[in-house]
Nucleic acid binder design. Structure first.
Lengths: 253, 253
DNA sequence: GTGTTTATCGTCAGGCAGACGACTATGATC
DNA sequence: GATCATAGTCGTCTGCCTGACGATAAACAC
């Protein structure tokens, strides 16, 4: 067959969907958008949109991220700037019937962001919110407002679960957890990120030894802070190292 | 904007491309297809093709894999059957100009297969071959026949490099290396897989201790073989364990 | 001052990996 | 048949890292 005869292949719509994760109040949260139109009208969904005609996939994801949150995606490996977020491709979902109306292939991306001082994603507070991933994934459960939580639209629960699992595993062997922190942070704040993402408690002393003993992971800024109460803690910035070797060990469940 | 107005989004062609890896003669090799038509006519490329109208992405990749090699993809986690190969999604490539003629988004997949007894992929020996990944990626280098090796077509060098990197890292923490082995294999054969994929030499004694000491990794079949020469070696089958904890450590380069 | 909270330093035992010696069982060679 | 080469398998030792946990330090609340 002629591989590029325009009649020889079916046309697809291509979208990007975003799993945007942050840590709020000691819980791993994801950005969810309430759908205003059918199908799945009124249900929560992941933010996303169509890839434009002359737009790279990563550029489309970065554009959607900026539109929804104001966050600027930065290159992996570069230090997290102010208002910056880590962005990487997650996986692609193309079940023929994942959208009831047409053939849509969605290239999901994963974004990790610090807790936003102004959590007003999208401008409309009623149509977008940060929700704990547990609430979004427990489709039969109840949200924090006591309301019955409906399952996420489309196959977005699966996409969210894959994104969460990627984040959980990737902070083991990379310095990616610093993407959840502001530009300057303490060892304790970084530890609470690990605890929230993994859902476990870590020994503060062993954690401190591990992260401060890994070359290139953390760079002290010289300042201290007392915003967590207790003894003032040193402030650090993310170092240049991206891969942790040996990795941070996730405790057994 | 109306998210599903057919005029609101551009049509894309969606393809699957395959990085099919195997270990032959102590070298990591990939399946390459010679292109018979422009663009990149006569150049080597990864096997692939269009996703059909009512076909899942994984199904399309499995179909292409069977067409090119006769290999049957099996579910991840299941033991490798005869003539079976591991298949997983790798990443998606959608640069607007990656194909000079039209907008094509390619969902690349990674397949790992044992060295095939009948290496006649595709039927036409002149248009398909197993080539060492080093030769395919060293675009200015020379193939094993002494011929000047042209770079792979499209962005396939990048895709191949990503697939090789995925394989190299994934055999660290999973039992995926057994996908390169026949159903029954010796510890030495498994070690030579690691050595070929990583391009390093491993200590046979420490390797033996590690793989036989990891619960669920290897299951002895009771048989022995002497096909490698020397003292007969025990035969093993892949155990049920898919994740290695602690992982196999890749020596520093 | 006392208690509470958080941060940071130290100590100790167990586990695992790298380096490497020793022994075993086969085929090849003389 | 003796010898050699090859590959597999079992042990030992040492150093590093982790988990468990004691102890001290520096802030705030009362």
């Amino acid at each position: 067959m002629s591989p590029y005869d325009p009649s020889a292949f079916p046309p697809f719509a291509v979208t990007v969907d975003l799993v945007v994760l942050t840590v709020r109040r000691h819980a791993l949260c994801a950005l969810a958008i309430r759908r205003g139109e059918p199908p799945f009208q009124g249900r929560w969904a992941l933010p996303g949109g169509f890839v434009r005609d002359d737009e790279d996939l990563t550029a489309a994801a970065a554009r959607e991220l900026a539109e929804e949150t104001g966050l600027i995606a930065h290159d992996p490996g570069a230090p997290t700037p102010d208002n910056g977020a880590h962005l990487e491709q997650l996986a692609t979902y193309g079940d023929p019937h994942r959208d009831p109306r047409m053939r849509v292939v969605s290239v999901a991306h994963l974004a990790l962001a610090p807790d936003l001082p102004a959590p007003r994603p999208g401008g409309d507070a009623n149509s977008a919110r940060w929700a704990p991933v547990e609430a979004l994934l427990n489709q039969g459960g109840y949200g924090r407002d006591g309301e019955q939580a409906a399952p996420l639209a489309f196959d977005h629960a699966r996409i969210l679960a894959d994104g969460v699992e990627r984040a959980r595993s990737k902070i083991e062997y990379s310095s990616l957890a610093t993407a959840f922190c502001p530009p300057e942070f303490t060892v304790g704040e970084l530890r609470r990120v690990y605890e929230a993402v993994w859902g476990v408690a870590l020994d503060p002393r062993n954690f401190h030894r591990k992260v401060t003993g890994t070359p290139g992971f953390l760079v002290p800024t010289g300042g201290t802070t007392t915003r967590q109460g207790g003894r003032p803690a040193q402030l650090f910035r993310a170092g240049g190292a991206t891969l942790l070797n040996p990795p941070m060990l996730r405790p057994e469940v």
